[in-house]
Amino acid sequence: MRRALLFALVLGSASANPTSAQTPRVSVVIRLYAQVDADGSRKPIVQVRDLLADRRWSQALESSFPVRLTFHLEIWRSRDGWIDEFQRATEWSTVIQHEPLQDQYRVTRIFLSGPEEFRFATRDSLDHWLRAPNLVEAIPAGVGTFYYNLKLSISVLSDEDMEELERFLAGEASGPASGRGSIGRGLRRLVLRLAGLPSEELEVRSERFRVERK
């Protein structure tokens, strides 16, 4: 009995090993900024790696499909011996499009404050920009031990998503669609199946840090 349990544990552990990747796969890293504020606060640095080296996303871009990265950053207070406390979350998106006529890349970054647009003449310059670490101006409130949790959703925009994006960029408020049930989601997936486009969700966490009273 014990041997069976041990075997299952070992085998399960082995199967969880990430297999050596044949091709690079997109990943996201979150770490703490080296500079520490007076009260001990540390801002997160978010970095996306190998997006353009990952064939799924580079092929989608080359096929003129816009790629959207949605970042959802949560701030948590860690309480040893008790459940952690969710403090708040912030979100931003980056949409990358290839403009075949101009052979350039357009990147739209969308914050609460509005969109920012960047253009890159070459794929290398886009890659360099995408790989740059982003220092996020978001710190916890109060004292205690904190950490950041980041979810990154990467997807290819459908025509309908593109229209929604245009609507947002044009200044229209667009809240989440109401009544979006799982049948609706299923149908959406069914529609997107025709294109067979990839999507991915990644989640990472930072180290913990302590904030004291100033």
Binding site: A4, L5, L6, A8, L9, V10, L11, G12, S13, A14, S15, A16, N17, P18, S27, V29, R31, I45, Q47, R49, F71, L73, T90, E91, W92, R109, F111, L112, S113, H128, R131, A132, P133, N134, L135, V136, E137, A138, V204
Partner: peptide, 30 residues
């Protein structure tokens, strides 16, 4: 036990972290 093994294994093999790139930092204010 199998499930626990997978969970523990996954936790024991985090994604590789590379040395910090020499790319300038971009500051964003979401």
């Amino acid at each position: 036990g199998w499930a626990l093994g997978i969970a523990l294994g996954a936790a024991a093999h985090p994604a590789p972290v590379r040395a910090q790139d020499t790319i300038p930092l971009i500051v964003i204010r979401p």
